[in-house]
Nucleic acid binder design. Sequence first.
DNA 1: GAAAGTTGACGAATTCCTTCGTATTGACCG
DNA 2: CGGTCAATACGAAGGAATTCGTCAACTTTC
Lengths: 129, 129
Amino acid sequence: MARPASKRPTDTELEILNALWELGAGTVREVHEHLSQQRDMGHTTVLKVMQIMTEKGLLQRDESVRPQVFRASRTQAQTQKALVADLLERAFDGSPGNLVLQALTSRRTSPEERRKIQALLDRHEKGRR
Amino acid sequence: MARPASKRPTDTELEILNALWELGAGTVREVHEHLSQQRDMGHTTVLKVMQIMTEKGLLQRDESVRPQVFRASRTQAQTQKALVADLLERAFDGSPGNLVLQALTSRRTSPEERRKIQALLDRHEKGRR
DNA sequence: GAAAGTTGACGAATTCCTTCGTATTGACCG
DNA sequence: CGGTCAATACGAAGGAATTCGTCAACTTTC
């Protein structure tokens, strides 16, 4: 009669993952400073979330050094793919086309982005990868 | 010092929205039956969630009839677009290209889907919409 | 080596979400 | 009308998520 832990990283967790992907790896302090540029969070709050993320397996922790160094367990691409697959499943009936449609009509999609997408599509059309 | 209500519909809420979009509008019973095909949820549970969704503004309720009829406040397309924009912001640094890349490399993307996407791109390339 | 500063562990407080049990209200039938 | 059944409201239970305060442990610096 309870709520199951979210399969996806939460918003806060994702922000920390973004920081770690950019840093490669980092201490709580480094992550906190990175986040502070956009977000107002206490140092211990970041630490706590990162501890929980480590328990969940989202982060790896090197305890042999002080301060401890954290890194993401999965790559950004792996996580992004999982998030897209999840959203596809939950909100787009599994049809990537519908999802891409909404992405294309986003205000964020510049002609440049569109060319980028076209290039991706071409690469898929002729052969692999 | 607490948790803010999620800006996005939760998983359960999205399932109910999916049902209502497909039904057009429906009673709790109809939604429950629709959901029962994939999910095991009590009748009152569905009702409760739908009540909360109504409070949140996600659903509109016609109380003049019995049983009450609910419908989604926003269209599927509107919601999908918001979800994509949100994911774009949180996990793809605002770049639709990166998102589409992950969508394209999804196992769910058949050649047929790819053609569909190509058609969308073409439509965007030449002119409006 | 003691003081001062960092870092990390722990747990509390609070709200949200999911799930129902129970109670109340409303509608229909006889 | 009163009874019955469905529909709705109410509220509670309990785990998840977010945020810190507090204190202990460890480092660095005089």
